[in-house]
């Protein structure tokens, strides 16, 4: 097992290099750089821009810049954001916390509801509860998340029950710690719902179909023939075998934690990585883009690795030797 983990981590290194190389190359294909916008400003002389270009190292050829950046990453130096005048790593750390918080709360929300509802729907197949959850799930799958976010903002604005966006109230700084906590929770509710509903719908269908399949299996009939209760037949025997595909999906969700919320963040003004990435991309703030990309890739690879490790624990047939 440990050898497997080490091998996977080592094999992730060339993968990461490939990802960054391709991304770096694609970014270069778009015309202009971060300073191009400045050159439109008549107040800034072309000489100054040339000087800045040399200072930022943007005058170097592509491969030199990539290798310089890569060497920096090896020393855990992700470079400097042109737009924010801040080390990329610091900037990302600030924003990633907000995104992770949203990602985790919506993941917990989605799984916490999807798993029990999926089980209920599978066990009472074709009953009213199955039909109702199916309809809701299809609605959840069909409505685009960004549109749902707009609806939520609209509803919040009309009713005034919940904040329409952002992460903190204006007077956040002056609140007592427990008030700050409550304020954060209030701000978290809508983005969590919006992001969670999209995940929940698909997940619930997945739980239902996996469980339906294992409920039909011979070993569940054999378990019933031993006299186990319906609960044991469903939870121990059927669900115990239905969770493997869910673990794989769980791995993808972990990989998606940082980047999956981008749309919702932008619509609901959540100060997370998604907006930062978008601004960085359109502003050609290249090292910031690369930094976010590396972090997201590491999350994806790590999430999959975690899923594989969990799979080995849940299914004795899977052994990595």
């Amino acid at each position: 097992m440990y050898r497997f983990i080490i091998r996977r981590v080592l094999s992730a290194i060339p993968l990461l290099i490939a990802i960054t190389l391709v991304s770096f190359a694609i970014m270069q294909m778009a015309p202009g750089d971060f300073l191009t916008q400045m050159s439109l400003n008549p107040q800034i002389s072309p000489q100054l821009i040339e000087k800045l270009r040399v200072t930022y190292g943007l005058d170097q050829p592509v491969h030199i810049r990539y290798l310089r950046w890569l060497w920096g990453v090896v020393r855990l130096d992700f470079g400097y954001s042109f737009a924010y005048h801040m080390p990329v790593i610091k900037l990302i750390a600030q924003r990633a916390a907000a995104t992770l918080l949203l990602g985790l709360s919506s993941t917990i929300f989605a799984w916490g509801i999807a798993v029990p509802l999926g089980i209920l729907a599978a066990v009472h197949r074709n009953s009213w509860i199955d039909r109702l959850t199916s309809i809701l799930a299809f609605m959840g799958i069909s409505v685009p998340t960004a549109f749902l976010a707009l609806l939520a903002v609209f509803a919040a604005a009309r009713t005034g029950w919940l904040p329409i966006g952002g992460m903190h109230h204006m007077s956040y700084e002056f609140m007592a710690p427990w008030q700050q906590f409550l304020d954060l929770l209030r701000h978290l509710i809508l983005p969590t719902l919006v992001l969670g509903i999209g995940m929940l719908a698909g997940l619930m269908r997945q739980v239902r179909s996996n469980l339906l399949e294992t409920l039909r299996s011979d070993y569940v009939t054999a378990a019933r023939a031993k006299g186990v209760s319906e609960r044991v037949a469903v939870y121990r025997h059927a669900f115990g075998n239905a969770i493997n595909p869910l673990i794989t999906i769980f791995g993808y969700y972990i990989g998606d934690l940082l980047s999956g919320a981008a749309l919702v963040e932008i619509v609901m003004a959540w100060p997370g990585l998604g907006r930062l990435m978008l601004d960085a991309l359109s502003g050609k703030d290249i090292y910031l883009v690369m930094g976010s990309l590396v972090i997201s890739s590491i999350m994806l690879i790590g999430g999959n690795l975690l899923a594989d490790i969990l799979l080995a624990y849940s299914d004795p047939r899977i052994r990595y030797d």
């Binding site: 299996s217 011979d218 115990g240 075998n241 004795p316």
Partner: peptide, 8 residues
Amino acid sequence: TSLNPVLS
């Protein structure tokens, strides 16, 4: 197929 694969 009649034995549960995840239990000993």
